[in-house]
Design a binder for these strands. Structure first.
Lengths: 291, 291
DNA sequence: CTGGAAATCTGACCTAGGTCAGGAAAAACA
DNA sequence: TGTTTTTCCTGACCTAGGTCAGATTTCCAG
């Protein structure tokens, strides 16, 4: 007796609206209108550019200007001339502003912690939330360069190894594979890119410089929940662009035919198959692309 | 490399806020302010009582009055005196109002259908949404009397049988058990109660009248995702109250010790164990309660 | 150096939403 | 019967949010 999918979706929408509406309301507890609080939040998250904030929050320029003014009058935000462009203003929290921002963060964290506390099935609930969040926010992931030994990278690589172990017939042991050196994937030699969906890692790719001018794509991975939205393609495009910036003329990569969606992606994106170029035990198919 | 639970929750909150905020915005497309649209919606869902709507939408009496006036002026709603209490007014959609209400419903349905369409993992996504919706909206389930052969009841009973089959060592086959007659669980003989979480069934219980004055509790079931919020207790309390209304003085029930949480619930709620009173092959433990 | 474009600000104005005090009508109660 | 309570309505008023036209300052291309 399956339930109507549309009704299920709408039940979800109503429950989430009610819950998250209450979350919005809780922001009003600090005696500041919601619009002002949202702008403070955006600045606190490092958005220093008024135009970006306007676009992000969907505000009219007049309104944005007034909200900013009121934050300045409260002493929470200070503005300085943009060094390169005198028309712009760069926004920054004052000490008091950082304090206030932290108070808002605490409100959200407490609420989240309270909702999760004392639930035996918290992990299952979080997994469900991840799935929904990634499904709703698929397109919004942003790709940034990251430290290949940082927390985001370690999360992605851990998931990558786990998945390889599950999908390769012979399993996967990092120690048997040629694990790239971090320095080879750090500028100016190479690069490591992470896709962040709302600040949490959702995918990665490395550009690893070898001896001399040769370079390889390594460790392409996308969170299973996010697949199907073209994120792998975006990661590859970003990696190629970054490689070009680093003066790399030819990229190579190795992969395994047990990963057909990856092989199909490479073919689709203009990679050409070449003979084996290393003695790593795991790959069985090799590609090259001239930039 | 597990991610921070609070960060995961907040990613979910942000994604859902953005998505569902857009959903709210879409209601503005029909040229009516949100408050008015919400009131139209509440009336369309059968809320005919102004005070209830005020409470439900959290409106001031003055504001509610004005919103209602504007719907009347548009010719979407008509009010008549409450038959028993001349101070009250009963609200009802006109033909034009029903048309408009249907248009809003279609907006929501289309949006839901569009988001689900073309997703290979739609069922997994819906399951995740169910889990989140039930976790967030646990407390809101309402208990109503239903036709034991209606769609909600059939859904609950199907899930109930499946779960019994999984949990009883010998499996479960409805045909071997004494399946209650629908008429015995329909007023005035008995009753069948369904818990609805946002309109979708989340649990059920039956009061089945036997020959003469004896009566039994049957088919107590709560959706696994909703468990832990006391819904089973509420269902039992509602069933007992309904039984009392129907003039029943003593209730009995049978269950199985492979369902320890049910047995614990009965003991906690004041039921006393009695000897076997039927020859059904599945139960192995029997209870009674005087009302 | 000059005219157009970009980034922001200012003032005027509007709507939606919300609060409050009090009024009218009906019901409940003593 | 008269008094109190309940239900809803009305008018006055306020705030947050949003729009628009035009001003100011700066940048940039020619």
């Amino acid at each position: 007796m399956p339930l109507d999918p549309v009704a299920r979706f709408r039940r979800f929408a109503r429950a989430a609206t009610a819950e998250l509406g209450a979350l919005d309301q809780s922001f009003l507890g600090r005696g500041r209108p919601l619009g002002t609080a949202r702008m403070l939040n955006a600045i606190g998250r490092g958005q220093g550019n008024l135009a970006d904030i306007r676009a992000h929050l969907g505000l009219d320029s007049g309104l944005a200007s007034r909200l900013l003014r009121s934050l300045e009058e409260e002493g929470l935000v200070e503005t300085v001339r943009h060094p390169g462009d005198g028309r712009r203003r760069v926004l920054r929290l004052t000490a008091a502003g950082r304090e206030e921002f932290a108070a808002y963060e605490r409100l959200s964290d407490d609420r989240a912690a309270r909702l999760l506390a004392g639930r035996a099935d918290a992990e299952a609930l979080l997994a469900a939330m991840d799935r929904v969040a990634l499904a709703l926010g698929r397109q919004h992931a942003e790709i940034v360069e990251a430290d290949p030994q940082g927390a985001e990278a370690r999360h992605c690589l851990g998931e990558y190894y786990t998945e390889l172990g599950r999908r390769l017939a012979q399993g996967f042991d990092v120690n048997l594979s040629c694990d790239p050196q971090a320095a080879d994937m750090t500028p100016p030699r190479g690069s490591f890119l992470v896709a962040l969906s709302d600040g949490l890692p959702a995918g990665c790719v490395g550009v690893k410089r070898g001896k001399g001018a040769e370079a390889e794509i390594k460790r392409l991975w996308v969170d299973p929940l996010t697949r199907g939205a073209g994120l792998a393609r975006r990661l590859m495009a970003a990696a190629e662009a970054r490689a070009r910036d680093l003066g790399i003329g030819v990229l190579r990569l190795d992969t395994n035919s047990a990963l057909p969606e990856a092989v199909a992606l490479y073919r689709r994106e203009g990679w050409t198959e070449i003979p084996r170029f290393n003695d790593d035990p795991y790959p069985d198919i090799f590609f090259e692309k001239r930039l």
